[in-house]
Nucleic acid binder design. Structure first.
Length: 219
DNA sequence: TGTGTCAACTAGTGTC
DNA sequence: GACACTAGTTGACACA
């Protein structure tokens, strides 16, 4: 059974009753991102990523709505549909440039900054807000693409390295049938050199001029 | 006219 | 609960 909101949304979107997929469901089943990796954002605490202090005074949406700074359901959207539907606003080069400049300084705005910027640009605060939201989304998308490309290269490189090591191992095996003490030692030395978690071991060996490794060979 | 871009929107979520 | 945020979507517009 559908709720009223879903039905209303269908009507609003001009969809047939079977076409509408509730947002939660769309999110879960259909709209899974192609790339789920977002290292830069995932590794940072959200607050830092947003460069925002939540303790700072927050804007009051309701108050702004009352003051007609924000659109409301009653008032319609920024581009009131009653006035001929949604018109595509194109920001001028100057507006876009100024917005870009302030985005470079901070990716989120305090209410005061938003207000000042909107006055400077002769836009509504809501428009400035939307621009920043969309800009953050674009930045994130770009970063995801960069991360994806980087990981792809890492994967390729590791794959190559793996091939090379397998080949090397094959060659070493063909030199000696069955493991000799020297062969075992080469393997150990190789492990020490490659394993990042054994960095301490490598450093210890470096200090002793690889004495530790070669001691075992001598024995 | 098909496609990409982007401002504006909605729904869901996290934080206080 | 109020609010700001993100993700996903819509629709107008530009352009090849």
């Amino acid at each position: 059974m559908e709720d009223d909101e879903a039905c209303n949304t269908k009507l609003r979107l001009g969809l047939g009753l079977d076409d509408y997929v509730p947002r939660k469901k769309r999110h879960d089943e259909k709209a899974k991102p192609v790339v789920s990796l977002d290292l830069a954002f995932a590794l940072r605490p959200k607050q830092e990523a947003m460069n925002v202090d939540h303790k700072a005074d927050r804007p009051s949406f309701k108050k702004m709505e009352r003051d007609h700074e924000y659109p409301s359901k009653e008032n319609g959207s920024i581009n009131n549909k009653k006035d001929g539907g949604r018109k595509k606003l194109r920001l001028s080069k100057e507006q876009a440039s100024l917005l870009e400049d302030s985005f470079k300084i901070h990716s989120t705005l305090t209410p005061a900054q938003k207000q000042a910027l909107s006055q400077q640009l002769n836009l509504k605060p809501r428009q400035v807000e939307v621009w920043f939201q969309n800009r953050r989304a674009r930045t994130k998308l770009k970063q995801t693409e960069v991360d994806c490309e980087f990981l792809k290269k890492c994967c390729e490189s590791l794959s190559e390295e793996n091939k090379r090591l397998k080949k090397e191992l094959q060659e070493l095996r063909s030199l000696k049938v069955g493991p000799s003490p020297l062969y075992i030692q080469i393997q150990k030395a190789a492990t020490l050199a490659m394993c990042t978690s054994c960095e301490k071991g490598i450093k210890a060996n470096e200090v002793k001029g690889n004495e530790a490794v070669f001691d075992v060979v001598r024995k």
